[in-house]
Design a protein around this nucleic acid. Structure first.
Lengths: 203, 203
DNA sequence: GTCTATACTTCGATAGAC
DNA sequence: GTCTATCGAAGTATAGAC
């Protein structure tokens, strides 16, 4: 497949960002199916042909929206270990990240039938999960918790699953058992308290 | 808004079921956006106008697909308490139900911008969760586990969140930390063993 | 970088004959 | 219950002038 010879707009152009913002907002408000070149452009106050000028195809537009968010997420995740109470920070981050995950859900649905999106999503999810496991591993070590009893992979997975499900349901207005689960986590995090003064810095 | 006077096909008609099946399969394979009257009919080997004859609108078609699955799910869920080891049965059921949850994800995405779908989804989710909590409550009682320590709401929510997330990710080909989490659950369920002979039948 | 013009496809929905 | 015929709206994408 030969690369198209069509012209393409600069990645730094202001209107490119305006289109990205419009696409993301539209996706959040009305779902991915509403993200057409015409709708995006209307929301951005631009002509719809500009979408093709800056992104060439709709797939590329979706991909660009995704990548922007993904990069930001990984970057923020990387700062967590520096927090005073990293376990609580991680939980808070998961909850928050998951709720911008109404957007993630749209990408999941998109991924079901757009190959390029699926690949990007899986790649990102893997990296995100791996990093999360590393964080949990480090934190559990600080708390002197036996990793044989509480494998970091399991803890990280459960945290991700619980927070994501909560955000997903919450966005729809379904909150049964949410309050109880939130209290439970809050209470148990409190019981753990702050980690004992840094004892393991061997890496 | 006056009800349309258009004719509508019988709920028992064979072709109605054929269309429902086609719609469901299409949704699973290519996402909800691929579910157009023309695509559905093509898959069913029928003319696309029949979709409108049997369902009047695409919303009604989506709703019918959803309701059919929902009813079946609730019915199967209701049989769980009768299992030999209900906790394990519940976990197995959750895992399995969640993996037809690639479909659920499509409905979630749909729900984002179709009001009638959202209402149906939320209603169903609530009933499903309530029933699941009841099951967990009964089972924990049999195991003589203190509900103050392990609130049934929390246990039910975490089970749902973990199983659903696993199915969702698995469907996309993302499996990081899945094996570890599955073993963990399996092992801990085994450690609990079979519930002590029925001691609480007071309801 | 933005515009007009254009080509082609697919969509949801309806009317009315058979 | 199924068909043909038809509507208008909206979609992706491209070519080429300004």
């Amino acid at each position: 497949m030969m690369a198209s010879t069509r012209r393409i707009g600069s990645p730094d152009a202001k209107n490119r960002t305006v289109l990205l913002d419009a696409a993301e907002q539209l996706m959040l408000e009305e779902g991915y199916a509403a993200v057409s070149s015409r709708n995006v452009a209307r929301k951005a106050g631009l002509k719809y042909q500009l979408v093709y000028y800056y992104f060439r195809t709709m797939d590329d537009l979706f991909l660009a929206v995704f990548q922007r968010r993904a990069e930001e997420g990984l970057k923020r995740q990387a700062t967590i270990l520096a927090a005073e109470n990293p376990l609580r920070a991680l939980w808070a981050f998961d909850l928050e990240a998951a709720s911008s995950g109404a957007l993630t859900m749209e990408f999941v649905a998109l991924a079901n039938h757009r190959k390029v999106i699926r690949e990007a999503l899986v790649d990102y999810s893997r990296r995100f999960r791996e990093a999360e496991i590393d964080i949990v591993r480090t934190v559990l070590r600080r708390y002197r918790i036996d990793p044989e009893v509480w494998p970091p992979e399991v803890v990280a997975f459960v945290m991700a699953g619980v927070s994501r499900t909560m955000a997903l349901e919450g966005a729809l207005g379904m909150t049964t058992a949410h309050e109880e689960t939130l209290s439970f986590v809050r209470e148990h995090l409190a019981r753990l308290g702050d980690p004992p003064a840094e004892t393991v810095v061997d890496e």
